[in-house]
Simulated assay, not measured.
Amino acid sequence: MTAYSLGSLLYEGKAKRVYATDQPEVVAVEYKDDATAFNALKKAQLAGKGELNCRISALLFEHLASRGVPTHYLGVGGERWMLCRPVRVIPVEVVIRNIAAGSLCKQMPIEPGTALEPPLLDLYYKDDAYGDPLLTEARLEHLGLVTPQQRRRLEDLARQVNRELLALFGSLGLQLVDFKIELGFTTTGELVVADEISPDTCRLWDRGVADAQDRILDKDRFRQDLGGVVEAYGEVLKRVQGACPEPRVYG
């Protein structure tokens, strides 16, 4: 018997659906099998992807919580269901890059694979209609999305997530190349990590594989038509499971 009942659909994005529940401080998130890239210009259905991302995200949220990182996560509620605190998501994607890859190497004279020290933190306006543009400090101030104090807290929290994930993935033979996260405010005003942390939102390379394509264990396999997307995500789950306790079941 579940400890909650599903209510109305609140939001549907590319990879997830968010539902109200009969508990005002709990929302239910369903992870979909949809795969998208290039602002949804490329689409596919990959059976099992939603379940894998839900499980990986739950394990990583559990790990971050144990390290003092506040998140919206409350527990899992099924193979592809996660229960979370409702948050007012800030429409800013925070991207941290430890190794140069992807769009960065098209926008700047930096060779792919170059270590970035310190890690590069960028903020993007989360809006597909505008192509998720890079936010300068002046643009961020003009939009009024966060106060200067909130921005500092947002960036500090993102860097803390990076440190914790670098250490965890490094211990599992994985290189965290870069990742994006979303943050938001709970109903009590607490800033927390929201959305998901998975191979959909992280670039992960297998440190034990030299080939530049074979080492990819993230959504770049879909972007670059390399195949084996679900198998790669399964490998990430297997390694993370070996280092993190089983995710709590909400209820």
Rank of each mutant, 00 (worst) to 15 (best):
M1Y: 06
L10S: 13
A15Q: 07
A15Y: 00
Y19A: 09
Y19C: 09
T21P: 06
Q23M: 12
P24D: 14
E25N: 11
V26G: 09
V26L: 11
A28F: 09
V29F: 10
Y31K: 10
K32V: 01
K42V: 06
A44W: 06
Q45T: 13
Q45K: 15
A47S: 08
E51H: 06
S57H: 05
L59G: 10
L60Q: 10
E62K: 08
L64Q: 07
P70I: 07
T71I: 08
T71H: 10
H72I: 01
H72K: 02
H72S: 12
G75Y: 02
G77L: 05
G77D: 05
E79L: 14
V89W: 11
V89T: 15
E93S: 12
V95I: 14
N98S: 06
A101V: 00
K106D: 13
M108A: 15
M108F: 15
P109L: 03
I110A: 14
I110N: 14
A115H: 07
A115Q: 13
D122G: 14
Y124M: 15
D127N: 12
A129N: 13
G131M: 03
E137C: 05
V146M: 07
V146K: 05
Q150E: 15
Q150A: 08
Q150Y: 03
R159S: 12
R159C: 11
N162I: 12
N162G: 00
R163D: 09
F169D: 02
S171V: 00
D178Q: 01
F179G: 12
T186H: 06
T188V: 12
T188S: 15
T188R: 15
D200V: 14
L204V: 00
V209A: 06
A212Y: 13
R215P: 09
D218I: 04
D220G: 07
R223Q: 05
Q224F: 08
L226H: 13
G227E: 04
G227Q: 05
A232S: 00
E235P: 08
K238F: 07
G242L: 04
A243F: 07
P245T: 00
P245R: 04
E246Y: 02
R248F: 12
G251F: 09
